[in-house]
Design a binder for these strands. Sequence first.
DNA 1: TTCCTATATATGGATATCCGCATATCCTAG
DNA 2: CTAGGATATGCGGATATCCATATATAGGAA
Lengths: 118, 118
Amino acid sequence: MQTLIAPAQLLKCMADDLRLRTLLLILNEKELCVCELTAALEQSQPKISRHLAQLRNCGLLQDRRQGQWVFYRLNPALPEWVLTTLNAIHDGNQTLIATDSERLQQMGDRPERAAACC
Amino acid sequence: MQTLIAPAQLLKCMADDLRLRTLLLILNEKELCVCELTAALEQSQPKISRHLAQLRNCGLLQDRRQGQWVFYRLNPALPEWVLTTLNAIHDGNQTLIATDSERLQQMGDRPERAAACC
DNA sequence: TTCCTATATATGGATATCCGCATATCCTAG
DNA sequence: CTAGGATATGCGGATATCCATATATAGGAA
């Protein structure tokens, strides 16, 4: 589904406020599931889910199912410039996900992660 | 017209193949005029002009008129993360503007730049 | 002024994007 | 199997984006 996407297309996928905040939150937390993102970003579940599908189809995110939850993380095969970009945006715009992160921390009953994978 | 644009909106402005190549060419050449970009990118003048207007309105580019020509350069007040991003994309995707640059070099009668400015 | 070159913009149509709502799928518990 | 929670997707409709074409504006030369 995603093999060698043009840089501009990857940028376009990042170039949406919700998707960008999603990426930065995941950059911070390593891994988040849909319900955590729904809570942190205060958006409807279908909306979050569709944006996550877009990010996955672009090759930016990778998903892993664990029980009822689906966890999303950055695709480890990401081109280096993408990571450089995300980190630069993160460092240059601390307020962008400040309240989102806060909501995430204050969220009760966050799903447990199994060391799993690989 | 452009005061403090959200990061996602800046990304969206960069997230178009033509506009991204335009930015990278200008990053390389410091300054280019519309006719040079029209030749390098092999696109119609109105199309180039409209994309340049978008880049200017986002605050990514700055223009300067010199005689009949209008030269575009990166806005010197650009947030650092934007420069980091452009450089990362440039370094990670050399082929992206390779033939554009070549066409630019082979273009005859490129307009002279006055040391002007300031 | 008139002509020519360089650049910008208006208009309208084709296409893409985004969202809300409803529904489907998948997994676990019982 | 049945029920319920978590996640994904289908279906319009509203909106935004993009382009080609035609036209307008600006500067320089005659």
